[in-house]
């Protein structure tokens, strides 16, 4: 049980990391959704082996309720953030026609300066 969960965490993390290195915002968002799931699974695994439902009064081995509470909070937060990023992507789409993450300004400026230097060296 625990091993399969851990494998799940690993798989979700690797796919998530792969996706957030992409250039389109929609893929990055999907990557974060998967990474969020991986973190929640990791939290649940951290709570120890599963047991009966964590309600007071049972005598069987109960599941640890604390990580479940933490996981629920984390899920709600990542849900809201996903929506916000989708809104950003839509706004970017209307402004520029696609949802690519653009080059860093500083990088562009340095590249431009380097090109100018080379041009002058040629003359």
């Amino acid at each position: 049980m625990s091993i399969s969960l851990l494998i799940g965490v690993g798989a979700l993390t690797s796919i998530g990391v792969y996706l957030i290195t992409a250039r389109t915002l929609s893929r990055i968002i999907l990557g974060f959704v998967l990474l969020g799931h991986a973190a929640v699974l990791a939290l649940l695994t951290a709570g120890g082996p599963s047991g009966a439902a964590p309600i007071a009064g049972g005598d069987a081995a109960l599941a640890n309720p604390l990580p479940q509470a933490l996981a629920l909070t984390a899920i709600v937060i990542s849900f809201g953030l996903t929506l916000f990023m989708l809104a950003l992507a839509v706004r970017q789409q209307t402004l520029t026609g696609d949802d690519l993450v653009e080059d860093d300004l500083e990088d562009q400026r340095i590249a431009q300066l380097a090109a100018e230097n080379e041009h002058e060296a040629d003359r």
Binding site: I20, I28, F32, G36, A46
Partner: peptide, 23 residues
């Protein structure tokens, strides 16, 4: 976008760290 992505990544790492500490 850069800001959100960087900070969201840090938040996700925070969550993994919490699991690590709790375990």
């Amino acid at each position: 976008m850069t800001y959100v992505v960087m900070n969201l990544l840090a938040s996700t790492l925070f969550l993994f760290g919490l699991a690590y500490v709790y375990a």
